[in-house]
């Protein structure tokens, strides 16, 4: 499945929740299920700026595919970043760079989340794209 198709799938999933409680219960569960983060990368250089809570994002590339790891001290933010990683993990830098930038609004996060949380999510997306950009330049 392409990133595009995954976004649509995720969109449907979000629309299917009957209320805020189930929506957040899902986000929290996804956050709790995020793979453990390597403590070595709990450094300022891996921190995502523009979030109210602390978010760390580390990436590596293997066989041309980018692998992200993330951590946050807040559960909902951790869930949101985990959702993003579902979309972008094991993709090529090119695929990541070509992913739509309006995905935060397309996922309906803007209507479900207040503005500053949507902004935090946009910051994470920007960071993911920056990593991809860096990898694409190394390759070239």
């Amino acid at each position: 499945m392409t990133i595009e198709q995954n976004i649509t799938k995720m969109q449907h999933e979000f629309d299917s929740f009957p209320d805020w409680e189930e929506r957040y219960a899902h986000i929290i569960a996804v956050g709790k299920g995020l793979a453990p983060y390597n403590e070595e990368y709990l450094k300022d250089e891996f921190k995502v700026k523009g979030c109210q809570s602390q978010v760390w994002l580390h990436s590596s590339i293997n066989g041309g595919r980018v692998r992200f790891e993330a951590e946050s001290d807040a559960l909902i933010v951790k869930g949101l970043v985990a959702l993003l990683l579902r979309l972008f993990n094991d993709r090529t830098p090119k695929e990541i760079l070509e992913a739509p930038v309006d995905l935060v609004s397309r996922l309906g996060f803007e209507q479900h989340l207040s503005q500053n949380r949507a902004n935090g999510l946009a910051s994470m997306l920007k960071q993911i794209k920056l990593y991809a950009l860096a990898y694409s330049m190394v390759k070239a």
């Binding site: 957040y24 109210q52 809570s53 001290d73 807040a74 559960l75 909902i76 933010v77 989340l113 207040s114 949380r117």
Partner: peptide, 10 residues
């Protein structure tokens, strides 16, 4: 986390 609390209270 206080932020989670704020989001869900909101």
């Amino acid at each position: 986390h206080a932020q989670d609390l704020g989001i869900l209270l909101d």
